[in-house]
Nucleic acid binder design. Structure first.
Lengths: 192, 192
DNA sequence: CGAGCGGGAGAACGATCGTTCTCACTTGGC
DNA sequence: GCCAAGTGAGAACGATCGTTCTCCCGCTCG
């Protein structure tokens, strides 16, 4: 990422600040100072705060999609690719900056008063569910598996954020194994 | 609930407004008007907005706990009691006023800047997990089942809120059945 | 009956927000 | 060297927020 470009630096800084403090708690002046730009340049790059919020959401979506896919691609089998989702979550939960899913948070904060934000959060989650559906189909699983794993992943994110521990990733992964094996019709996955 | 009491009416009204618009989006004057009290009375009952927020969280916790337990108690068997959690969610998601879990939302909105709110949300989720743990123990399930079902319930709440549909309750219930039967060592729950 | 007090309506206050404006300064082209 | 255009720093503006204060009405109690 080219943080020498003011626009990129603004969005990256806004992402960090919004994640750390919440969107409404971060004023334009604080963002201006943290990004090291003048207020004039800020409004030259973005017409309003809400347009910065949308740019941050786009950045988060790209970051999430690319990071998840990179982890998934390292897995060898279709089953392991489904489980890799939860390995990605586990690594994410352990980051110091982790404070829950940015889309859930922004939806909770602004979804009721900003249709833009609500719609973008909906599309992001839909995109994730489609991605899981794609992985599940490749594993030969019935259609009901993808929503189940998606719900597990969502729950792990909120649980880890509120509890402040990364345990939920491991617990969700164990549940996912059971659900995957049941959906794939594995009678005895342990071979016992 | 005695809504003739100003204090009760204030908290009930704040609960509705905060749920519908978010906490930060509802000012004290809007709350005053909706609750039908004077500003003087409002500050006579509560010293500050944050104390109202905490009172709303307490009300939500009581409402959630009682409503959930009432539904659970109607189920006959330990297994059905665990599944009743998701029936309770299903009924909740179908309400027009449903806009996600109030604790997840308040944590997302204020958790980063209000330790009080963050801590109360953590305690609420912990209390729910303990409740599920209690039900799981009565069903004779191993300890790992309760976190799995809790994560499913959390994920169903955020998924239903963002997607705007109650489907997640049904999907989570189906997943819960698989997890419960696996944890209870049921080899073939359908008898096929 | 009348003085005092509690409560309602809403103005006022200081802080903060998003946004715009001012102004001095730099810089690049001729 | 000089003028014009653009930039940065920050003051200013209007709106809104949480909170407090003022004023006035109506009720109570001696």
């Amino acid at each position: 990422m080219d943080t020498s470009e003011p626009r990129t630096r603004i969005v990256a800084t806004a992402d960090e600040l919004y994640n750390a403090k919440g969107i409404q708690a971060v004023g334009m002046d604080e963002l201006r100072a943290a990004a090291g730009v003048s207020l004039k340049r800020l409004y030259q790059e973005f017409p309003s705060k809400s347009s910065i919020v949308m740019a941050v959401l786009e950045r988060r979506h790209a970051s999430w999609t690319e990071g998840l896919d990179a982890t998934v691609r390292q897995a060898a089998t279709p089953r392991e690719r489904l489980l890799a989702i939860f390995d990605y979550l586990a690594a994410w939960f352990c980051e110091d900056s982790f404070r829950g899913c940015g889309f859930i948070n922004s939806f909770a904060e602004l979804g009721a008063i900003s249709p833009e934000v609500a719609e973008y959060a909906r599309k992001h989650k839909e995109s994730f569910q489609n991605y899981v559906g794609h992985l599940a189909r490749e594993a030969g699983a019935p259609a009901y598996l993808a929503p189940q794993l998606s719900i597990l992943a969502e729950g792990a994110q909120t649980t880890a954020a509120i509890a402040g521990t990364p345990d939920a990733a491991r617990q969700a992964r164990a549940a996912a194994e059971v659900l995957i094996d049941a959906a794939l019709g594995v009678e005895d996955p342990d071979g016992t």
